[in-house]
Amino acid sequence: MERYLPKMYKSITEIYKYIGEEKENEVIKEQYEIIDGISVDFGIMQKTRKAYVIKCEFTWDDIGTFAALSRFLSNYRGNNISGNVYLEGSENCSVFGDKKLIIGFGVKDLVVVDAGDVILVMDKSKDQEIKYLLNGLKDQKELEKFL
């Protein structure tokens, strides 16, 4: 990483310094804005000639989608939730709450994310298409401040 993704390496090193400290979340948000959105596969593995594979057994989940991330949330009445959430008559939803209370009533197959100044509500089946939504938002200058 230091060789092929030096900016990412620097940002991750900076984050590491603040793990468990008072400014941890602030530093993570600050550094995350700097990091290029490239995976280790593309940024490092496809470039290096010095990679090794070690056989091992462990559970793996690529947390690159809301569906995958949902598997790590608490189960609540057949839904996956985190934060301040109350669901009634709802099923198969993934709700990522924050400070505000999110109430769902009679909804099904939704992803709801409270990201502070943005609330995302989407059908679970659109999970793989979120990047297209974000690309469309980038073209809307009046909404740029929310990205």
Score class of each variant (00 low, 15 high):
13 T>G: 15
91 E>G: 15
138 K>E: 14
25 N>A: 13
132 Y>R: 13
78 G>R: 09
133 L>S: 06
99 K>N: 13
13 T>K: 15
52 Y>W: 10
64 G>C: 05
111 V>Y: 14
7 K>G: 06
44 I>N: 00
104 G>C: 02
70 S>E: 11
126 K>I: 04
81 I>Q: 06
70 S>R: 02
35 I>M: 11
76 Y>W: 03
82 S>N: 12
138 K>S: 12
36 D>Q: 14
2 E>W: 01
87 L>E: 08
36 D>Y: 03
59 T>I: 05
44 I>W: 01
143 L>P: 06
71 R>L: 04
65 T>V: 03
47 K>M: 08
27 V>Y: 00
78 G>N: 11
128 Q>A: 12
135 N>V: 00
61 D>L: 11
69 L>S: 06
59 T>Y: 12
84 N>V: 04
36 D>G: 03
46 Q>F: 06
10 K>F: 03
106 G>I: 00
117 D>I: 04
135 N>L: 02
71 R>D: 08
9 Y>G: 05
106 G>L: 00
128 Q>Y: 03
56 C>H: 15
136 G>E: 15
127 D>G: 02
38 I>G: 01
137 L>Y: 01
54 I>R: 09
37 G>R: 13
114 D>W: 04
60 W>D: 12
101 L>E: 11
111 V>G: 02
35 I>A: 02
68 A>P: 01
51 A>V: 13
147 L>S: 05
31 Q>F: 02
41 D>S: 10
110 L>Q: 05
126 K>A: 10
40 V>E: 09
96 F>V: 00
42 F>M: 10
99 K>F: 09
53 V>D: 07
147 L>H: 08
130 I>Y: 15
94 S>H: 07
7 K>M: 11
121 V>K: 05
64 G>P: 04
97 G>M: 04
88 E>G: 06
101 L>W: 09
53 V>T: 14
31 Q>I: 00
122 M>Q: 08
50 K>C: 03
65 T>K: 11
81 I>Y: 01
41 D>K: 11
32 Y>Q: 12
27 V>T: 08
145 K>M: 03
67 A>R: 14
51 A>T: 13
103 I>H: 09
107 V>N: 05
64 G>H: 01
124 K>E: 08
31 Q>S: 05
135 N>H: 07
52 Y>M: 09
51 A>S: 14
103 I>R: 14
118 V>A: 05
139 D>R: 15
63 I>F: 05
20 G>Y: 08
91 E>D: 14
60 W>K: 15
47 K>D: 05
72 F>G: 03
73 L>W: 04
64 G>S: 10
58 F>M: 10
63 I>D: 03
24 E>R: 00
98 D>M: 08
45 M>R: 15
21 E>C: 08
22 E>K: 12
75 N>I: 09
6 P>Y: 04
64 G>Y: 04
15 I>G: 03
9 Y>S: 15
119 I>Y: 03
64 G>L: 00
56 C>L: 07
46 Q>M: 12
28 I>N: 06
140 Q>E: 14
54 I>C: 01
36 D>S: 11
104 G>Q: 07
99 K>T: 13
88 E>R: 15
58 F>A: 14
100 K>G: 02
58 F>Y: 10
63 I>W: 06
38 I>R: 09
19 I>K: 09
64 G>I: 01
42 F>V: 09
7 K>V: 13
